[in-house]
Design a protein around this nucleic acid. Structure first.
Length: 670
DNA sequence: GGAGTATCACGACG
DNA sequence: CCGTCGTGATACTC
């Protein structure tokens, strides 16, 4: 999938489906350019949001090239002002205890939160302390985004704004689920987070413009209207047509900048490059009958854009049947070809606009439509080796695909969905379940499982992880809560994955479905061992997960200062695992063994413990860092192995050369 | 019991 | 400062 200079014009070949966001940037200089896997949510970060990776100031001035918009129209200038680095970190060294001390079990357990029953157990855990945020600090909350960057964004800023919005949204959703909200209920966490970000300046591209929006790429996916609002792709929080008033020849007139197709009426059988769009207005309301649409506002703007041959951005709203979620895909620029009036369902006049996608843009919506066809099996996925490499072990099939060479599959291994614990692995302890009937109610502090999580329910109602934590405690089969939502990582893979052959990094993993930030992807399955009891050589194998590696810290959780709630707390995002765990997936494993390393990953791992055969085990669970467009390779940070002995403060280098191609690539890993 | 439908509460921008 | 634009989650129906 990393063939350089792929053709974007031949829409008839299902074969040529690219990820919605191209993997490889088109650099003018040709093929020495590194592949670009997924732009990281690196800086600029506000105070409290550390940059994803340590980088020097010279690196900090680099910009991720605006990828797949480079060809059409001619790319705008890169932003003149590099985004500021708010919290520049020195390179992390092995000598830093926070990084090289995987075992925190010596820390005295905090029994102040009613966790006394855990004392003396093998797994000692620290319950994050509630730390109310001082008011004055809240009042002075700074988004850290300066005026220029707020007007004209860039890729890093766009990703950072989206991350911060969603972190806050998840937190509001969690508070709402628990009915803990300080000031009333939060029925719409997306609106609450969105308006908070708006008000606090966590936004970019506020200067409204037609055409390209700096930092937003064709194929980017969104799950909320507000996300498009915050990054300047489409500013109305509800309306489908965004427009700008410009000076015309005689008077001011509106021209359209972007439209969001709801996906319900705007269907055009067959050709994904054509959109028949319905104008706005005229719908029945609670105190209004439906009526004829008028040629004003957005409708007028589209009409004027048609006259001026002014292209508009199109965002396709889609209903993803698989996980019952509506998503929005930015599908690039379209030209308005014609308009007419038509009787709508209610019998009133509606405006119709025919839009045709500008040529030369990477596919986005077209890829999505092709994927929907693969799901039906006709035509079958091109390059398909196996329709389900799990042989039905996973509830959703995992395709095995090779479109780059003649390799017909990875070396033999046994596919399993459960971790195998070796005899020597003595993390076993009696498990304390809860006694909630049917389901554990968020906010119910009588539930042992919720108390183990520091009082918070770790997931939102639809199974999205709210915050990274040293450890997540899930309910277990022995808990009576049969329908409980606190079992997310035990329910198996929920997205439609495929294992595919990469150009230069062996086999990789990606998804046919768009993945929401915080979604569970899979656990790392393999033979788990206590690292202190195995020879060093085992850790050097491919297909091994090692919790004792040194991992770059990054901030994913909400900012308490932004949330501005007394109930918000600062908590550690560093994993805290009671034993040095190493999992070998060489002989037995699941899809996780195919996930490649990246220095700018889109997936992170999180320790999760739950019971298995009446004993508590630690699992490594993977979650999406940000929204991941379909067909984008899934990658996580493998970290760097920590050789025995002291490091004397020298930086660590991985044993394997990195081909992740990120602008912030560290060169090696593992 | 999964797909359609009702209901509810909300924000930006012109 | 008020009207215009639907949305997203959930409870409900069939």
């Amino acid at each position: 999938m990393e063939r350089n200079g792929g053709h974007y014009t031949d829409k008839t070949r299902v074969l040529d489906i690219k990820p919605l966001r191209t993997l490889r940037p088109v650099f003018p200089s040709g093929n020495q350019a590194p592949p670009f896997v997924c732009a990281p949510p690196f800086g600029p970060f506000p105070p409290g949001f550390s940059s994803f990776y340590p980088f020097s100031s010279s690196q900090a001035n680099q910009h991720t090239p605006d990828l797949n918009q480079a060809q059409y129209p001619p790319q705008h200038q890169q932003p003149q002002n590099p985004p500021p680095v708010y919290q520049q970190q020195p390179p992390q060294h092995a000598s830093e205890p926070s990084l090289v001390t995987p075992l925190r079990s010596f820390r005295s357990p905090d029994v102040s939160n009613g966790n006394a029953e855990l004392e003396g157990s093998t797994v000692k855990r620290r319950i994050p302390k509630k730390r109310p945020i001082a008011r004055p600090e809240n009042m002075n909350f700074e988004s850290g985004i300066n005026v220029a960057d707020r007007e004209n964004g860039n890729r890093e800023l766009v990703l950072s704004v989206l991350m911060r919005f969603d972190a806050l949204r998840r937190r509001f959703a969690q508070l709402e689920d628990a009915k803990e909200a300080v000031s009333g209920i939060i029925k719409r966490p997306d609106l609450k987070s969105g308006s908070t970000c708006m008000g606090r300046g966590v936004r970019t591209n506020t200067k409204k413009r037609p055409g390209i929006v700096p930092g937003v790429e064709i194929g980017d996916v969104f799950f909320f209207r507000f996300e498009m609002c915050l990054v300047g792709l489409h500013s109305p929080s509800m309306a489908g047509i965004d427009y700008l008033v410009v000076k015309g020849e005689t008077e001011e007139e509106p021209i359209a900048t972007s439209i969001v197709s709801s996906g319900y009426y705007d269907n055009d059988e067959g050709n994904p490059d054509v959109l028949i769009y319905t104008g706005q207005g005229g719908n029945a309301d609670k105190d209004k009958q439906s009526s004829d649409q008028k040629l004003e506002r957005g409708n007028l703007a589209l009409e004027k854009s048609l006259r001026r041959d002014s292209a508009v951005r199109v965002i396709r709203g889609l209903k993803e049947a698989s996980h019952n979620a509506k998503i929005y895909i930015y599908d690039g620029l379209y030209e308005i070809k014609e308009s007419w009036v038509e009787k709508g369902k209610s019998g009133h006049n509606t405006f119709k606009y025919k839009l045709v996608r500008a040529p030369g843009q990477p596919p986005a919506f077209a890829s999505w439509t092709a994927i929907q066809k693969w799901k039906t099996g006709v035509p079958s996925r091109q390059g398909l080796i196996l329709p389900d490499m799990t042989s039905g072990v996973e509830s959703i099939p995992v395709s095995l695909v090779n479109e780059v060479d003649t390799d017909n599959g990875p070396a033999y291994f046994t596919y399993s969905t459960t971790v195998k614990y070796s005899e020597s692995f003595k993390l076993m302890q009696p498990s304390f379940g809860c006694d909630c009937a049917n389901l554990c109610k968020p906010g119910n502090l009588d539930c042992h499982c919720i108390r183990k999580n520091g009082g918070d329910f770790p997931y939102t109602g639809n199974g999205i992880l709210v915050s990274r934590k040293p450890m997540i405690y899930e309910c277990s089969p022995s808990c009576p809560c049969s329908t409980c939502k606190n079992k997310v990582t035990q329910m198996g893979v929920k997205v439609r994955l495929e294992v595919f052959k990469t150009a230069n990094r062996g086999w990789g993993l990606r998804s046919w479905d768009a993945i929401r930030a915080g979604s569970f992807i899979c656990i790392y399955v393999g033979e788990a061992k206590d690292k202190s009891k195995v020879q060093q050589t085992m850790a050097n194998d491919d297909y091994t997960f090692d919790t004792t590696n040194v991992y770059n810290p990054f901030k994913w959780n909400y900012e308490p200062g932004l949330a501005d709630e007394d109930a918000c707390e600062e908590m550690s995002e560093e994993s805290e695992i009671p034993l040095p765990l190493i999992i070998s997936a060489k002989n037995v494993g699941n899809v996780a063994r195919f996930m490649n390393h990246s220095c700018s990953p889109n997936v992170f791992w999180q320790p999760v413990s739950y019971e298995n055969n009446s004993q508590l085990f630690v699992h490594v669970a993977f979650f999406a860092i940000s929204h991941i467009p379909p067909m984008t390779e899934l990658t996580y940070d493998y970290g760097v192995s920590r050789p025995s002995g002291t490091q004397n403060g020298n930086p660590l280098y991985g044993k394997r050369k990195c081909f992740c191609g990120s602008a912030y690539c560290r060169g090696s890993f593992g």
